[in-house]
Design a protein around this nucleic acid. Structure first.
Lengths: 341, 341
DNA sequence: ATGAAAGCGCTAACAG
DNA sequence: CTGTTAGCGCTTTCAT
């Protein structure tokens, strides 16, 4: 036996079990090929020596790293951070179940005043064959990653719709924000509210427009008026507070459906400013089910991030296993976390 | 030239540049060994072919994966999640700067009603030589990881003090919670408060005791009484609210220093319940500078997580580069994010 | 059902 | 300074 400091190799196991190295390899990769008694003997030796196949050697031979690359951007907004956290945890767990690990990388240093290189980091990982596939998460930037990676024939699955290219060929999974907002609007309508305001973001964000459409659709379906009942502002508490206040004074809504929890907190403050009681008097619904929503008892639309991760891994598994994939795009419905507001 | 679908190899570059494979290898790993003109020619060929060394081959040969393992637990509290997020982002970036990537793994499935295996996942990664080192983050559990990994001679750096083994031999980096709370207490004292209450956790948590000690030390140094000015409760908004309310009614504190933002929010609510104005009338300081603190304008102790990650990578770099390390333990001071409360 | 040979792409050790 | 040789640990033919 070799120095126990070094991990056991196939040869060690083979010697211990009295078979050839290939037989041990087969015992691991094609157990059916072995006679039951041989298999048992080999397995015993494996356990005894605590043998685990060397990752690098296997990767070199099979050209598969069993690693999924995920790029982390240095800094993001809060909700994006929180969302990322839930998503990543679930991604790691789902990946483990199909025998993959997650490799985190960053796009490299971002020079002062410059935008980060949208392709930074991908290229090296690809050429060094360090990962088998990527998960792309920032498709909302109108990102060139999908195009570039497709061109390179690099396997990937996107979290986020290809907004700009409706017939993009890559697989993706996304959350139906419009459906979530529509459900939120339906919910406050069912509670008796009719003057339901939309507190949203400035135009230009696909996600923001999508969420707004859910409100508009719900209002239309309920035959409710929308005129004068919406505001489009920056995603900050103060902006939300000011806009909600203005809306309250001008149009007297009894409910706010918001594009984010941040804006919803602003609405809550505007209501507090005016001494209105939230919950009974006026309803407020946020979006993202962030920590703030949970602590403040804010009703909020919750994205099924865990499920998104599971579906992405399923697609990836197909892609890497069969070389093709069934699902091209999958839209998941959020749920509503109903709380006091 | 080979099929351009496949990444270029050392041999491709060598052929293109008219040198041997070894010379190309040297051009990458020991450029000083080459004559300038040869080096230039090789580099040109590398650029032309878009060559990047194959990760698996290099790993197999050098026995170094240039990967740092980090275990993610499936679910944690909020602040832990947020903290993790900042930490991980910084870890990824710092690792990149020294040529490492971060490999995320999970501890495996946790059976219903059981505790997760504290060593789950580490072993396989170690034996398959998939990672060069680990970053351990949950040392506060009185975890067996450090002992086990030390015994296995696996390189690792811990985020968190070895509370139970003061003379543990492994390197670690931690945040001085007591110093943070002391600074917070000093801060409210400087604002004129004298009856400063401690809203903390139930005994049994080293971190909780450490944070409390900061308050106690500050009070003692200022010659202020502490009797009747503290509560120990579960880490929830409701518990904080109830405890702060009781404290308020019984001892009339004018300031609350809290073990967490969650408790601080509870204190804020207790104050609102009694119509007290926060900021001028009564001061409240939280801990962790979570999203909630930022949105609600809560003054809070902020852990230097980015710096923790940088220091951990520095230790790791030493450990892996020189086989030894200088720093044995490093305690970093938090800062105080001063806001309206 | 099991064994022998070859080689994935790279770098350490040595030779020239 | 550059080239040759060998082999890291594994899996994939192909024999047996």
């Amino acid at each position: 036996m070799e120095n126990p400091r070094l991990p056991a190799t196939l040869a060690d196991v083979a010697e211990r079990a009295g078979v050839s190295r290939q037989t041990v390899s087969n015992a691991i990769n094609n157990p059916d090929l072995l006679r039951p008694d041989t298999l048992a003997r080999v397995r015993q030796a494996i356990d005894l020596l605590g043998y685990t196949p060397n990752h690098a050697a296997r990767q070199l031979r099979t050209r598969s790293s069993r690693l999924i690359g995920l790029r982390l951007t240095p800094a993001q907004e809060f909700t994006a951070n929180m969302a990322m956290d839930r998503f990543v945890r679930s991604l790691v767990e789902a990946s483990r179940e199909v025998g993959y690990h997650v490799l985190l990388f960053s796009g490299g240093p971002v020079a002062e005043g410059e935008l980060p290189d949208p392709l930074g980091g991908y290229d090296d990982l690809l050429r060094s064959t360090a990962v088998d596939a990527f998960v792309i998460t920032d498709t909302y930037l109108g990102n060139p990653q999908t195009v570039e990676l497709s061109a390179r024939r690099a396997p990937f699955v996107a979290f986020g719709r290809p907004w700009d290219e409706p017939d993009a060929a890559h697989p993706w999974v996304d959350v139906d924000g419009a459906a979530g907002v529509q459900a939120a609007t339906d919910h406050v309508r069912a509670r008796g509210h009719e003057r339901i305001a939309w507190l949203g973001w400035r135009p230009g964000s696909r996600i923001g427009e999508d969420r707004r459409s859910g409100w508009h659709r719900a209002m239309t379906e309920h035959g409710l008026a929308t005129a004068g009942l919406e505001a489009a502002v920056d995603d900050s508490v103060d902006a939300g507070r000011a806009a909600a206040g203005a809306l309250l004074d001008a149009a007297g809504p009894t409910a706010f459906v918001c594009a984010s929890d941040t804006l919803a907190v602003g609405a809550l403050q505007a209501l507090a400013d005016r001494g209105r009681s939230v919950g009974d008097d006026v309803a407020v619904v946020g979006f993202d089910d962030s920590q703030v929503a949970q602590v403040m008892g804010l009703t909020s639309v919750r994205q099924p991030l865990e499920q998104v991760a599971v579906e992405i891994v399923a697609d990836l598994s197909d892609l890497l296993g069969r070389g093709e994939y069934a699902a091209r795009g999958l839209l998941l419905d959020p749920t509503l976390a109903v709380r006091r507001t």
